[in-house]
């Protein structure tokens, strides 16, 4: 046995492609399921939300403008990078969620496979959802789904990796960018996912990960006038009336929380979660000689 001291990581935010500390200087203690000290995570603030939304807005046109094939390859690259870190993530899940190693490994595998599943949707959901409309007149008329813009998301509080991926991937695959608030008690797998994204050709600002307290940050995201949609999946079982009231100020699209946090293990039946963050655009043009 070596008596070498391990080198511990400073857990930081992932914002605009960089890893800053919270501008507030605040941190909070993260404990393992068994009560051990794990890390001091950044406790993101109102200003971090503002900066993250700014980064997401800046990155959005470029990400939406990339080809669907390109976005698919980037999402697939995330899966490749995660695959190489399966052991690390399984350890983190055992610590964070207190599950058995076998269960943790299954969660990591499911998270990787979910990236692959959504990567494949990148250039397909348009055809599944959109198409030619047979209007009664001499017009070419086409409807296609397009990303809605910048999405604010609250990650599931329980499922700290698979749940996070199940929320993130469908938001970004269409060309949205996202600001996500992690599980408060289990933020470290999200911090590690940020490190994976940074090395996976995901352009900076496409995914912004804020560790901290959703109760503090969600109202800020919900009321932000440069956020187009709000995913409250992570608020499962809580009363989100206040958040939805704030969201109405600029008519945000809101995905409401389920009554309780679902198992994210089953592969979704279709691309509905992608489409929940898309707008249908319909284009008309006359036909003639």
């Amino acid at each position: 046995m070596s008596d070498r001291l391990d080198v511990r990581r400073t857990a930081k935010l992932y914002l605009g492609g960089k890893f800053p500390r919270s501008e507030s200087g605040r941190t909070y203690e993260v404990e393992a399921a068994d009560g051990r000290f794990l890390a001091n995570a950044a406790l993101a603030s109102r200003k971090d939300v503002r900066d993250a939304v700014g980064a997401a807005r800046k990155a959005q046109p470029g990400w939406a403008g990339a080809t669907a094939y390109n976005r698919g390859q980037v999402l697939y690259r995330v899966a490749e990078m995660l695959e190489g870190r399966r052991v690390q993530f399984a350890h983190e899940l055992v610590d964070a969620e207190g599950c058995k190693p076998k269960e943790a490994a299954a969660q990591v595998d499911a998270a990787i496979d979910r990236w692959v599943w959504y990567a494949g949707w990148s250039d397909k959901f348009h055809q599944v959802d959109g198409g030619l409309n047979p209007v009664a007149g001499p017009y070419f008329n086409l409807s296609v789904p397009e990303p809605t813009g910048v999405v604010g998301a609250i990650a599931p509080q329980g499922s700290s990796l698979l749940g996070l991926v199940a929320v993130l991937a469908p938001i970004i695959v269409s060309g949205n960018t996202v600001v996500v608030v992690t599980s408060r008690e289990r933020p470290l797998p999200a911090v590690s996912l940020g490190e994976v994204l940074a090395t996976s050709d995901v352009p900076g600002g496409v995914v912004n990960i804020l560790t901290g307290d959703a109760e503090e940050l969600a109202p800020i995201l919900a009321g932000h006038l440069d956020v187009n949609a709000l995913d409250l999946t992570g608020c499962a079982g809580t009363d989100t009336t206040e958040l939805e009231v704030l969201a109405a100020e600029n008519v945000k699209r809101v995905v409401r929380p389920p009554a309780e946090e679902p198992s994210f293990e089953p592969v979704p039946a279709g691309p509905r979660r992608i489409l929940a963050f898309c707008e249908t655009k319909t284009v008309w043009h006359p036909k003639g000689t």
Binding site: N133, V135, Y139, S143, V251, T280, T282, V283, W284, P286
Partner: peptide, 24 residues
């Protein structure tokens, strides 16, 4: 950023053609 785009025409409506907006 608009739900309906009319090119070289305007204000056409049809039951087969989805209508609705972006943003506010």
């Amino acid at each position: 950023k608009a739900g309906v785009v009319w090119a070289n025409t305007f204000n056409r409506f049809d039951p087969t053609s989805p209508f609705g907006g972006y943003k506010e």
